[in-house]
Amino acid sequence: MPINDKNGVKVWQVRDRNSQLIRWAMWMAAGIIFYVSWMKISDQTTWFFVYDAPRIAADIGGRAFPPRWSYISQLGKPIWDTLNIATLGTFFALCMAVPIAFLAARNTTPSKLFIRPIALLIIVSTRSINSLIWALLLVSIIGPGVFAGMVAISIRSIGFCAKLLYEAIEEIDENQVEAITATGATRWQTMVFGIVPQILPAFAGIAVFRWDINIRESTVLGLVGAGGIGLQLQSSLNTLAWPQVSLILAVILVAVVIGEWVSAKVRGAII
C-alpha cells in the first residue's frame, strides 16, 4: 500500500505513482481513439439529414399508422417459411455440430494434433460470419429461396452450437467416464453411457437457445432473397408501403416474443 510523505503528512493512496500514471495514460489513449473514431463518423454524416431526422421520423411514423391489417392474409405463408427455416436449420446444424464438438473437445478428440485444429477451424469460421452473409453467399450459389435460407442458418449455427457443446464436453466429470471404462466397455459404449448422459441437459439447452436466436435471424434473411417474411419486408420497403412495413414489424415482434416464450418454457421443463 503506497503511502506518500507530503510535507511530513502521510497520505494514503490506492495506487502508487507509476501505476496511477499508466492508468491515466490508458484512459487518455482510449479517449483519443474514441474521439478520432467519432470524427470519422461525423465526417461521413450529412448533418443536415440528422437535424431533419425528428421530422422524417414523425413523417414515417405518420405514414406507417395505422398498419394495413388486411395485408396479414398474405403473411401466413412467409411466417410458416420463417418458422421452417429456423427449425430445420437448427435441426441440421445440431446433426453436424455434435460430431464436430466431439472432435474438438480435448478429452474426446481422436487426435489433438490434426483433427482438433480442423474442428476448431470449422467452428471459428462458421460462427465468425453472420447468417445474413452466409445467406448472401448461398443465394448466389444455389439461387434464391427458402432452401438457401435454411442452409445459411444451419451453417451459421454449426459453429455456435459446436463451441458451446465442446465446452460442455470438456467440463464433464471424468470419474464417471473412468468407471464405465473400467467395466471393459468399448470406446463407443463409454461415450453412450459415460459422456452422453452428462452433456444431454447442456445439449437440450443449446438447441433451444439457438432455435430462439434462429427465429430472430430468419426473419431478416428475406432481405437478401433467402426466403421467409423478410422478402415481404424488402418489397414493402422498396415500394415505400409503410403501413405494410409496420404490420410486418409487428408480426415479427410477436413471432420473436412467442419464440422466446416457447424456448424459456422448454428450457424450464428440461432443466
Binding site: N175, Q176, A179, Q198
Partner: peptide, 9 residues
Amino acid sequence: FQEYALVER
C-alpha cells in the same frame, strides 16, 4: 470408486 463415480443422470 471413492466418489461412487455413478453416471448420475
